[in-house]
């Protein structure tokens, strides 16, 4: 049974179709990222999954239709768009108001580094603190599933790292994660499956890749080798681009060893597989369209 199962989902705002997803399954324990341009429907998708927005089709969380059995949402942590919390309540009281089981609150708060502000009123928090508290709330509540919409907004690099660490800990404890973000490179550390939302459709960007294929970054010790290798690869109909002491290769099925074999006579420093760059995939998709 999937943690999220979407069937024939359609969501329109007036006459404008915002989402048209025939099918989507997210397995238990998976961590998926959904990317897309502004207004592509990322937040709309999360709002549909949580039942906040009315929609056509069916959405199941852990086998439960959320419209008929909303009680499943009691184990779903949610952060949508901005950290909206009760400002006159302390951070701890906010969490206790929304979660029935708050046993993990201390451990998670410590991991995020916000233990000392938990008993202060939310109105005294900065944006970053509110964001961290909202992530904490989502993680404490989301025992089965954590839905995060732009979770790293307003966070400094260290806080992002801590948040990712917390998300990974939640995954180890059985929670599945679905997040949307514009910060592709950062989010990559917390997810292992990527989806792209574009023109109301959703595309699976995880292997097998529908676009781009395998990609390598080959670095050389000298600039002459770069130029020569570029010529050789072009002669072998391998698409590549120059970049200082490196070459970006778009492979047509060749493995690392195949590339290494072709370039054996050159002064190669290292060959790095960059196929799984979400950013690359996203940009490729955008260019392709």
């Amino acid at each position: 049974m999937s943690i999220i199962e979407i069937k024939k989902l359609k969501k329109s705002y007036g006459k404008k179709l915002a989402l048209d997803i025939p099918s989507l399954n997210v397995e238990h324990g998976a961590s998926i990222g959904i990317f897309g341009a502004n207004g592509s429907g990322k937040s709309t998708l999360i709002k549909c999954i949580t039942g906040l927005l009315p929609y056509e089709g069916q959405i199941f969380i852990d086998g439960n239709d959320i419209r008929k059995q909303p009680s499943i949402l009691a184990d779903v942590g949610i952060l949508i768009e901005e950290p909206a919390l009760y400002k006159d309540m302390t951070g701890r009281k906010n969490i206790m108001y929304f979660c029935s089981d708050t046993t993990a609150i201390h451990e998670y708060a410590e991991l995020l580094g916000i233990t000392d502000i938990l008993d202060k009123k939310v109105k005294s928090y900065s944006l970053g603190m509110r964001q961290k508290l909202a992530i904490l709330l989502a993680c404490v509540k989301g025992k089965k599933l954590i839905l995060l919409d732009e979770p790293f907004n307003g966070l400094d690099i260290i806080s992002v790292e801590k948040a990712i660490e917390l998300l990974n800990l939640c995954r180890q404890r059985g929670a599945s994660i679905l997040l949307t973000s514009h910060q592709l490179e950062i989010s990559q550390k917390a997810i292992d499956m990527y989806y792209l939302l574009k023109n109301t459709q959703i595309y699976d960007c995880t292997a097998p890749k529908p676009f781009g294929g395998l990609k390598y970054l080959v670095e050389f010790f000298d600039i002459d080798s770069v130029k020569s290798a570029y010529s050789l690869l072009s002669e072998n109909d391998i698409i590549c681009s120059l970049s200082d002491y490196a070459l970006k290769i778009q492979s047509d099925g060749q493995s690392v060893s195949d590339i290494a074999q072709i370039l054996k006579d050159f002064n190669v420093k290292k060959i790095e597989d960059i196929s799984y760059s979400v950013k690359e995939a996203y940009l490729q998709m955008e260019i392709k369209e």
């Binding site: 906040l52 009680s71 949402l73 949610i78 949508i80």
Partner: peptide, 8 residues
Amino acid sequence: KLVYTSGE
């Protein structure tokens, strides 16, 4: 958004 996704 939080209140109405509490499971009730």
